[in-house]
Design a protein around this nucleic acid. Structure first.
Ligand code: MN
Ligand code: MN
Ligand code: ZN
Ligand code: ZN
Lengths: 142, 142
DNA sequence: ATTTACATTAAAATAATTCTAAACTGTTGA
DNA sequence: TCAACAGTTTAGAATTATTTTAATGTAAAT
């Protein structure tokens, strides 16, 4: 199946029509051979570079959220003013480099599986994420 | 030592003078026998209820951030528009109830200790946090 | 008591995100 | 084929959390 068909399928499955703008977003998100992390701002900058015509912020937000809802993108929990997204939607954890504000994958094999002994009555576990914050070892003396 | 002296000490150690407003914030944060989670908005509402005089939002933000920097408060990573803080500054993990937007502690004993087999060269681990998102088991059919 | 440094505050600024409403385009069925 | 409809794009406005500003007030040092 051609990339274009793959993108169209993903869009249709997300209840979105395959428009010019959305196909361009797909190309940026899903054609690289490596998965990656991005903010809406990152994605918009990449799109502006690759694209002759402008693409509106609202369209980027809408499309990313639709993909997230469908499970084609994942949002990462970080205390930050902006949201981070991940094209790697498999279960995995993250390092967050506080110096560079960069997310780094931590595969399932690099961390022992999390065993939770408590449960919340009436509630089901939707996700379990480990976030490991790292920084250069400056002994941060207040 | 009286509560008042404890608050004054915490403030001084955070390089803050013990003013009327800040002592009130301390009372709300540090007098309950149980630790709790809050947003700036929560805290402001509590203060408004307890207080005759108004306290400015800027003061709440400044004081909370100073306490966080000193380690008297902890910020919790959640994908949300607002920041969550915790008066429990010991190492522990969290459940986040997506229905109610409520944080629930998950003590160290309720989760096996996290063993990380990977490290980032030149970087030191600052924190390891597990966030378990839960929700009522509605089978969320897109 | 006077001086100084720090604090409080209302209001403005900033920044991420969402909403609005008008113009546009893909899709469908007559 | 093509009108009609439903969904889409967009610029800009609105919203919301947070930070900054700058004028005024207060704690602490002398
Ligand atoms: Mn923040
Ligand atoms: Mn968000
Ligand atoms: Zn990742
Ligand atoms: Zn907690």
């Amino acid at each position: 199946m051609s990339n274009l068909n793959i993108y169209t399928k993903k869009l249709r499955e997300s209840s979105l029509r395959p428009t010019r703008q959305r196909l361009k977003i797909c190309e940026v998100l899903f054609s690289p051979d490596k998965t990656f992390h991005f903010t809406i701002n990152d994605l918009t900058k990449i799109l502006e570079e690759k694209l002759s015509e402008k693409i509106s912020l609202a369209t980027v937000y809408n499309t990313v959220h639709a993909f997230k809802k469908k499970g084609y993108l994942k949002e990462i929990s970080i205390n930050s003013d902006k949201s981070y997204f991940d094209t790697n939607v498999t279960d995995h954890h993250h390092f967050f480099d506080e110096d560079t504000n960069e997310l780094i994958d931590c595969g399932d094999k690099e961390i022992d599986s999390i065993n939770i002994k408590k449960n919340i009555t009436g509630k089901k576990i939707k996700s379990v994420e480990v976030l490991i914050k790292v920084a250069t070892d400056n002994q941060n003396q207040n």
